[in-house]
């Protein structure tokens, strides 16, 4: 039963990725712009151009190109980046951890901020604080990540230059990382000086990504909490003398998380999408930043690889949300 549903999910994931790959492949080749034109030296002869085209397989028909690319991808060969002249898979694996650390940190921050505000809003219902929270959150809901990023740059980068404006780590710090997960690795190796430097670099991009998600979590979770708070079991617990804080945290919260979770999952995929622009703004060396360069350079193999990676991340997020929902639901956990 579980094995079948997992198999189902895997097949669905493969079909989804194939569809995404196909669409992007075709789109990239019908929109104007020529990757070869970007890389030839001025004054190259037509023969040189033809040779380059042949080298990257761009002289074949569209279906043939797709076939060649797909066959290679299946065995783990994503081709060579046209602009960086390096193996695409290697480039992706080198950059992906930076983005994963950024997105995961943003998720944690968003859940903490959004959850805390939702709980405070619930506790302060029927006081003037509640409409104030609702109104503020309602306005902030409309602020996208890049606006947060620019506001943060102004505030924490220019007016009060507390945090570094760009990059992932101070290049003068010396440590030989064994993995590309710098933040996690510095923590595990107890190199707190390095950890703090990396964390300081992440503050602004993390906040820019986390705040839009936090506002959504606040709204959804508060609604679910308020609904749970009028249930009979909360009334009974209140009669038994449970404090309001415990009513919210112990009685209501666990039943409110479920409904809030799936929407948070959807929003988290938006957050991952937001890394493209936010990493760019803060020159953070992740795959989002790389994606912009790849598009500017019409680096077809790299773009295709990036699209597959983003697609895979979205699929993993959705799977994770479903698994978490199942784990949190006593009906599914205990027959």
């Amino acid at each position: 039963m579980i094995a079948i549903s997992i198999l189902n999910r895997l097949i669905m994931a493969a079909v989804t990725l194939f569809g995404v790959a196909l669409i992007v492949f075709v789109l990239l080749r019908v929109v104007p712009g020529d990757p070869i034109a970007m890389m030839i030296a001025p004054g190259a002869s037509p023969a040189d151009i033809l040779a380059l085209r042949a080298r990257y397989g761009l002289d074949l028909s569209l279906p043939a190109q797709f076939g060649v690319w797909l066959q290679a991808v299946v065995i783990g060969d994503f081709g060579t980046s046209i602009s960086l002249r390096r193996d695409v898979l290697e480039l992706l694996l080198g950059r992906l951890p930076a983005t994963l650390e950024l997105a995961f940190a943003a998720l944690v921050v968003a859940v903490l901020i959004g959850g805390a505000v939702a709980v405070i809003g619930t506790l302060s219902r029927r006081t003037p604080l509640e409409p104030a929270i609702d109104a503020t959150n309602g306005v902030l809901l409309a602020v996208p990540d890049f606006v947060w990023a620019l506001a943060l740059v102004l505030l924490l980068g220019v007016l009060f230059p507390i945090f570094p404006l760009s990059g992932r780590i101070d290049p003068t710090l010396s440590i030989d990382f064994a993995t590309p997960f710098y933040l996690a690795e510095s923590l595990v190796r107890l190199r707190f000086d390095i950890f703090l430097d990396i964390a300081a670099h992440m503050v602004m991009p993390v906040l820019a990504l986390a705040l839009p998600l936090a506002t959504v979590i606040t709204r959804i979770l508060k609604e679910a909490l308020l609904e749970a708070m009028v249930q009979d079991y909360v009334l009974l617990a209140r009669l038994k003398g449970m404090s309001e804080v415990r009513l919210v945290l112990q009685e209501a919260l666990r039943n409110a998380i479920g409904p809030a979770l799936s929407l948070t999952g959807v929003q988290f995929t938006f957050l991952v999408g937001g890394t493209v622009i936010v990493e760019r703004i803060f020159s953070y060396p992740g795959i989002g930043n790389m994606a912009i360069d790849a598009v500017i350079n019409r680096d077809l193999p790299l773009i295709q690889g990036l699209v597959l990676v983003f697609g895979a991340i979205f699929i993993v997020i959705n799977l994770g949300v479903d698994l978490l929902a199942a784990a949190l639901n006593p009906r599914l956990r205990h027959g």
Binding site: L235, L236, A237, Q250, R254
Partner: peptide
């Protein structure tokens, strides 16, 4: 309340916390 005066509610479906 809940000590000298207690309540037996109407709907046993909603009067117990589904998550505990």
């Amino acid at each position: 309340m809940g000590s000298e005066i207690a309540l037996i509610p109407q709907d046993p479906q909603t009067a117990l916390n589904p998550g505990r």
